[in-house]
Simulated assay, not measured.
Amino acid sequence: MGILSRTSYVIRSKINSLLNRAEDPTETLDYSYEQMRDQLQEVKRGIADLTTQKKRLEMQKRRLEDNVEKHNEQARTAVQQDREDLARRALEKKKTKMNQIEDLERQIADLQNQQDQLIEQKNELQTRIEEFRTKKETMKARYEAAEASSTVSEAMTATGEEFEDVGRAIERAEEKTEDMEARAAALDELHESGAFDDVISDKDRIDRELEELSAGSGVEAELETLKSDVGEDEPEPEPEPEPEPEPEPQKAADVDEPALEDLEEDIPDEEIEAELAELQDEERD
């Protein structure tokens, strides 16, 4: 195989592959159906044209037949008038017209045969078109059902091109999110370690640590001061009472007086006065 022929073969194969991928079976079937209908219309137009030509020949044949009858009458009339020369000329014209009629009849017969063949082809083509139309609709329904099933399967398994693009987009979003989270965590770690100095302040890391220590010691001192102040405000604990000595025997009057003091708050005044009166009477006795 030469270079040119091989190149031509490769180009044709590439073009065929592109056409196969771009071809839509439903559109192809519809186009084929339209082509067959166009062919049927061409056949019908051919039959119509052929029929028209045949009708013209038949009309011409009828005119010649009329002329033949006319020349026949002319010849008869000439014979009756003893004009053989005129009769001979009329018969010659009649003969010519008869020959033309025979030619027309042959042409008309040929056209009739062609017309019959075209009509038969037209009927056969029409039958094939109807069968193709039924098969076309069936194939289109099967193809659309298969296409829908394939689409659903791709959606369920996420294997279609669009779903692959969606999957890749999700992966890229996850990668970017992880990168941003790692970057934020790294910046927080560096900020806490003091690796980034404040561009506004002229203090370095040591100054900030010393300030934190001094602030912490100040807080501790203030806390101790608060504790001491709170301790002074609290009341001192009362000393435990010493054990009381046993009471000596006392007089009745000494015993009754504290009892009276204890009862002043609870006993009514009338009862107290009555008891005092009784005590005074007992002392008189």
Results as ranks from 00 to 15, higher is better:
residue 4 L to F: 00
residue 101 I to S: 12
residue 239 P to H: 01
residue 212 E to N: 06
residue 89 R to T: 07
residue 30 D to L: 14
residue 4 L to Y: 00
residue 191 H to E: 14
residue 257 E to V: 06
residue 233 D to Q: 11
residue 201 S to V: 08
residue 131 E to W: 00
residue 272 I to G: 01
residue 128 R to H: 06
residue 91 L to C: 00
residue 4 L to C: 02
residue 275 E to P: 00
residue 173 A to H: 11
residue 268 P to V: 05
residue 55 K to I: 05
residue 211 E to C: 05
residue 145 A to Y: 01
residue 135 K to D: 09
residue 67 N to S: 13
residue 102 E to I: 02
residue 50 L to T: 15
residue 172 R to I: 10
residue 266 D to M: 06
residue 253 A to D: 15
residue 111 L to H: 13
residue 98 M to N: 13
residue 3 I to W: 02
residue 68 V to A: 05
residue 220 E to M: 06
residue 187 L to H: 04
residue 266 D to V: 13
residue 247 P to T: 02
residue 20 N to D: 11
residue 199 V to Q: 06
residue 179 D to K: 15
residue 272 I to H: 01
residue 242 E to N: 04
residue 31 Y to R: 15
residue 39 Q to I: 10
residue 259 A to S: 08
residue 279 L to H: 12
residue 223 L to N: 08
residue 151 T to Y: 06
residue 50 L to E: 02
residue 103 D to C: 03
residue 106 R to W: 10
residue 146 A to N: 14
residue 9 Y to N: 09
residue 160 G to L: 03
residue 223 L to A: 11
residue 24 D to V: 06
residue 124 E to L: 15
residue 235 P to E: 03
residue 129 I to A: 13
residue 73 E to P: 01
residue 221 A to S: 09
residue 184 A to M: 12
residue 156 M to L: 12
residue 70 K to T: 12
residue 31 Y to M: 14
residue 156 M to W: 03
residue 52 T to G: 04
residue 214 S to K: 04
residue 244 E to Y: 00
residue 241 P to R: 03
residue 54 K to S: 06
residue 121 Q to K: 07
residue 82 D to L: 09
residue 243 P to W: 01
residue 88 R to Q: 07
residue 284 R to L: 14
residue 227 K to Y: 04
residue 221 A to K: 02
residue 10 V to T: 09
residue 202 D to W: 02
residue 160 G to H: 04
residue 204 D to Y: 05
residue 260 L to Y: 08
residue 248 E to T: 04
residue 25 P to N: 05
residue 138 T to F: 04
